[in-house]
Amino acid sequence: MLKPKIRKGTFQHVESELYAYHDTRKEIVRLKNEILYATATPDNNGGGRSSLPSDPTGRTATLMVSHRRIEQMERIVEAIESVVDRLPKDKSDMIKMRYWARPQTLTWEGIALNLHISRRQIMNWRDDIIEAITDKIGWR
């Protein structure tokens, strides 16, 4: 049975998540630390100002929203890692060159030349990887 095609917006969203992968991992750690240290010291003795509201209800609501946000970011990161970790070296190199290299210096054509394959093959690899991540996250 044929899978439904990924919508353009979903494709672009997953691709943007690939670009933001390392930043998302850092944000997860930051949010977890914020929750951990804000709840461990409710009166914030000796610390700077907490970013959490001072009223208990507001604090609880903020922590719940942060927790949901962390869960969503973790699902995305885990999906990306699961797919990329199983890729052959040439395909994972393509991901690193296109999405994780800073500054981004290579075009799709440049990446294809580096990997000694055609631009069309690179685009097929990209499409397959985006589809696998989309399926793993559950966005299709």
Rank of each mutant, 00 (worst) to 15 (best):
D23M: 11
M1A: 15
T57I: 14
D127N: 12
W125Q: 01
D90P: 00
Q72Y: 10
T10M: 08
R140H: 04
A38Y: 10
N44A: 15
G58H: 12
Y21D: 11
S118G: 10
K136C: 04
E27C: 01
A79P: 00
R140N: 06
E109A: 15
Q12N: 04
S92R: 15
I80Y: 03
P88F: 12
E15H: 01
P56H: 06
N114Q: 15
I111F: 02
W108C: 03
W108G: 00
E34P: 00
S54H: 06
T60K: 15
K32V: 00
E109K: 15
P103H: 05
A40L: 05
L113Y: 07
R126K: 12
Q72M: 11
E74P: 00
Y99M: 13
K32I: 13
R30H: 10
V84S: 09
K5P: 01
R49C: 03
L113K: 11
V29Q: 05
F11Q: 04
D43Q: 11
E74S: 09
V65C: 08
W108I: 05
P4E: 12
E81G: 07
N33D: 14
R68N: 11
E78M: 09
M123Y: 06
T60Y: 11
I137P: 00
T60S: 15
K26N: 10
K8E: 13
E78P: 01
I70D: 02
E71T: 07
D55L: 07
D23L: 14
R68T: 02
R69C: 09
L106D: 07
S66N: 05
E15T: 06
I137V: 11
T57N: 03
T57G: 07
N33G: 08
Y19T: 09
L115W: 05
I70M: 05
I35K: 04
S92F: 06
K89T: 14
R7I: 10
K26F: 09
G46T: 10
R102D: 13
D135N: 08
E78K: 12
I122C: 06
D90F: 15
H116F: 14
W125A: 00
N114A: 15
A79F: 08
A20F: 02
K96N: 14
E71V: 09
K32S: 04
W100C: 06
D93V: 09
L31M: 15
T10Q: 08
R7A: 14
K5N: 12
R49F: 09
I70C: 05
